[in-house]
Design a protein around this nucleic acid. Sequence first.
DNA 1: GTTGAAATATATGACGT
DNA 2: ACGTCATATATTTCAAC
Lengths: 148, 148
Amino acid sequence: MAANLDEIDWAIIEQLQREARISLSELGRRVKLSSSATTERVRNLESLGIITGYHAAVDLAKVGYPVLAVVRLKYPGNRHQPLRRLVAERREILECLRTTGDDCYTLKIAATSMGHLESLVDELAGFGSTTTSVVYSHTLPYRGPDRP
Amino acid sequence: MAANLDEIDWAIIEQLQREARISLSELGRRVKLSSSATTERVRNLESLGIITGYHAAVDLAKVGYPVLAVVRLKYPGNRHQPLRRLVAERREILECLRTTGDDCYTLKIAATSMGHLESLVDELAGFGSTTTSVVYSHTLPYRGPDRP
DNA sequence: GTTGAAATATATGACGT
DNA sequence: ACGTCATATATTTCAAC
């Protein structure tokens, strides 16, 4: 499953994780490769599904979501479809991880207010018992994996 | 703190959240604005810190991190500096949220193996008691906030 | 993987609305 | 605040090596 990536592939990945909007020629300059070779490598990383996309990051508070929370959900039974549907519909749910352990799901939720968060948690509580923690702060800037 | 964003701003943000590498002229076409006006708006969103960056997303398993885990950390006391230092150093820690509740920190960690995860958790356990859940699967593709 | 040239697309700024 | 147009520049692409 894991791909074989050399040093240059990793340099490309690191640059694009940091600054995804640079041109392929600029990227080539940074990783010391011609723009043709760079283009080919990037296309390859994309088509192998190693790079899965390029996304703008936004300041949640500034776009109207000042409340961020982590909600853990205990989910008795094995009928996961209804929850999946809710999660797919509610765009406020930014991330949904299914995990081992007592809490089957860990969700990251952005809300416009505590009242909004409350109503979202109420919806989730229909599926199982929830534990909600409000986030004080991100202690890290954006970060992706580096060469193992 | 929250900015006033109109429909077009949101259209721009949505397009860039989905596909951050499109050119400003292509973006202008999509949001039905001239490239000059689009450029100005994007620069504005960036300089106001509404858009904070553009990042490539990678498949963690394919780049050598097949194990993803959520680790919660109870952190007695208030000397947070040593933990912050560890978090900043260890690139395997992809996210670190400080939260309300019994668990002061929730971390998302990518590891190359269960053994690797174990050693990371051991390091964290030096700071307080940990609860680790291994992630089976992401149930959502990348997603950002939309217009509230 | 490189180089170089041609075709294309893009960014930029001035001007009018 | 936005559109249009013209210009300068950068980028992509496709050869041949």
